[in-house]
Design a protein around this nucleic acid. Structure first.
Lengths: 317, 317
DNA sequence: AAAATGTTTTTTCCCGATAAAAGACATTAC
DNA sequence: GTAATGTCTTTTATCGGGAAAAAACATTTT
């Protein structure tokens, strides 16, 4: 007799005090559904686990539910697909987000929605209540978030908002330019047989494809942008440089979501700059690399700066 | 009637479940004791609060205990000192540390004590049990500590130790050199009427004094070293550069504690390098500044590297 | 009335508990 | 005997609660 795993039924019953949401399971379930119509039979449990990036425990919960809802027939190693997944089979998207993601989104919305002036206090308890989560999760989020340089902790007391100001953008881009120029130089100096050149070729092809279909796919650029810059930063072989790209990626992610003005044109320009940058890297000429990198970073900085209102300035501490 | 504040008596009664230690109170109490023998009368509560860096609530708890133990006579605004503090009046030093400090020390001891190989898993629950604290505090510590680049989180799973390796030291010093060269250049370019020049003069005097008494005070150098470099980094006016010094300071702090070999000679050399560096800054000649800064950073890197055994290397991920 | 003291409320820090998820061990199937 | 499945244990993620500490409010003193 196979017992129904606890994880599959969480949150379905009435008002128990929930300590942890099963979003990992729900997200993996949805992703597993998309795998279903491709192949008519499912691989082994450990294989599925690697594929979905979850443990076997979660895989078994997924299979249990798939069997219950008539999606598959499951008997030990035999997992035959019975029908294609329907829209109702999926869990709602909003239930697949982790708490950290929910808190981050909520926090960034407040931050960018205005009214978030520099110097303002951040109250853990209030934030937790407004978002509807426990204080521990909010605390952990704020600690993690603090490395982005937008908030600061007063010992034994509240957090202080430093504000998404022009000064912040300038400080951020200053470091970015230092790091990327160095990484690009290191990239160009990599031996010809390094695997990165193949990665670069692949990215170049993706850029050309996107450029040719820019009219309909311009919003796919930011994801490509991140992959391209991360590839370059990795050439530095320096964890602090690589990790710093998290800060840049976070800022640009929310910045792009917030400021859609002239998005298509901006991305079109950026793609061309990337292609020139890629060509310079392939030439392996340090001077050309430096010039192409500088040019692109300058326009990236300009894009970020124009989206920040002039008026807002950080208060002197 | 004045009720005895709850904060003053915490931990004194028997086995209640303690949720928060009163180390802030105990530490401030000890510091307040040292203030006692200087003046014969204590300032107002708000003033004491600013002086000790704690709230009035804590100040009142301190005064309450001081009255109880016959140290002062307290009647509203009148706080007359009755006797000089004795050794027994002080709380034990180990009770004045915050949980975060306790966890950090304990964690760093393990890390540096050897047997902490790269790739090793870090178990929150185990760490918490061994140190004798709750899991929440350990989690928060690990999140805060992760920015030092020595550990990394596997989503929904354990932390992985990256190890205090030669690679780590090289990556750290690479960034340090980039940041400090830039900060030093910015420093030298500061207008003559900037307040930093006076700060620099004061630090120079302290260096000369320490140099002349090096035989007995060589162990006071690391504190001076940190203040000197932080002053320079602040000239960058970049929060990421300033914040990065936290990483350097942490590493050097524990490194110094661990590796006392030739401490006196190392510090003597460093003081001379600092004095040359200071002279270069005062000359405001960019080339001289660059040279002096490079020279000092090179020997600092060397010091750090020689203390890391050659054998230990990070595993390829 | 300004600044102190006295009192009450709110927030931070930290623990223990619990469900989700991972991981380890035992058993079965090929 | 290797690799899967079946079962049990441990760890992580999160919540609510409670004492410490801060902060806000009320009252007195100079």
């Amino acid at each position: 007799m196979r017992l129904k795993p606890a994880v599959a039924s969480a949150g379905e019953a009435t008002g128990q005090e929930m300590s942890k949401s099963n979003n990992v399971y729900k997200d993996a379930f949805n992703r597993c559904l998309r795998l279903l119509d491709e192949s008519r039979s499912l691989p082994s449990e450990p294989e599925l686990g690697t594929l979905l990036g979850v443990s076997r425990t979660t895989v078994r919960s997924i299979l249990t539910r798939m069997e219950e809802t008539g999606l598959i027939d499951w008997n030990k190693r035999n997992k035959t697909v019975l029908r294609a997944p329907k829209a109702e089979d999926f869990f709602p998207e909003e239930e697949t987000d982790s708490l950290a993601e929910i808190i981050e989104r909520s926090f960034m919305r407040r931050l960018l929605a205005g009214g978030a002036e520099a110097g303002m206090q951040i109250n853990e308890l209030e934030l937790a209540r407004e978002i509807g989560v426990g204080t521990t999760s909010v605390r952990e989020f704020l600690i993690r978030f603090s490395r982005f340089g937008l908030i600061e902790k007063r010992r034994n007391s509240h957090w202080v908002l430093k504000g998404f100001t022009r000064a912040f953008a300038l400080e951020l881009t200053e470091i970015r330019e230092m790091f990327e120029l160095r990484s690009a130089a290191a990239f160009a100096a990599l031996p010809q047989d390094s695997a990165v050149w193949a990665d670069l070729d692949r990215l170049e092809a993706e850029h050309r494809k996107l450029a040719s279909e820019i009219a309909t796919r311009f919003n796919e650029f930011s994801e490509l942008d991140e992959r391209f810059h991360r590839l370059i930063h990795r050439a530095s072989h320096n964890r602090f440089i690589v990790d710093f790209y998290d800060v840049i990626a976070m800022i640009f992610h929310y910045h792009y979501q917030w400021n859609k003005a002239e998005e298509r044109q901006r991305n079109e320009v950026a793609i061309q700059e990337h292609l020139a940058y890629i060509a310079a890297l392939k030439s392996r000429d340090p001077a050309k690399v430096d010039a192409a990198c500088r040019k692109h970073l300058k326009s990236a900085r300009q894009t970020l700066l124009t989206s920040i209102p002039e008026g807002r300035q950080a208060q002197p501490a």
